[in-house]
């Protein structure tokens, strides 16, 4: 019995270890944190940012898997949503950059000088797609 429990604890720990390592690798490869530090000129605080990401992941794991419940005012959801969105937006932008599609596309089409407008197409597209998804999509997809 005791052995079984130990085995389960070990398995859970191993899963968490792998997922955590993968998460850090993902964040690192996309370079969101360096970009933020560069924009805000806070390179010295890198250790704190690392902790923020780590603690955030742990907290997310705990909150997501347990059934804790806070009863804060529903307007705090706005802040959470906004922060969440900025983070996902940065991830998406970083992915675009990592994939290297855009420089080639813009060059082939001779559109180098209209960079900003094309970037705005992507940004607005993301926002509109997201809004559409939340506002109208659930009504269709649930069906009943």
């Amino acid at each position: 019995m005791g052995f079984k429990i130990l085995l389960i604890i070990f398995t859970g720990f191993a899963c968490g270890f792998a997922v955590g390592a993968g998460f850090v690798a993902f964040i690192t490869v996309l370079g969101v944190i360096p970009r933020l530090m560069q924009l805000t000129k806070t390179m010295k605080m890198v250790v704190h940012y690392e902790w923020a990401v780590t603690l955030g992941a742990v907290a997310g794991g705990l909150f997501g898997l347990q059934n804790f419940q806070l009863s804060v005012h529903s307007f705090t959801a706005i802040i959470a949503g906004l922060l969440h969105g900025v983070f996902v937006g940065m991830l998406a932008a970083a992915l675009y950059e990592a994939l290297n599609v855009l420089p080639i596309l813009f060059k082939r089409m001779n559109l180098d000088d209209r960079l900003i407008y094309l970037l705005m197409a992507i940004v607005l597209g993301k926002m509109c797609g997201s809004l559409f998804h939340w506002l109208y999509f659930p009504d269709f997809s649930t069906g009943s």
Binding site: S71, A77, H84, G85, V86, G89, A92, A93, L119, W134
Partner: peptide
């Protein structure tokens, strides 16, 4: 639900700021 204790199939209070945030994040990155 975790934050407010309200069950809402369309939690737009999170989702609309989230959508705007995506745009902000991308602009910030670029």
């Amino acid at each position: 639900f975790l934050m407010t204790g309200i069950k809402d199939p369309k939690p737009l209070l999170i989702q609309i700021p989230y959508s705007i945030g995506i745009g902000l994040g991308m602009i910030l990155f670029f």
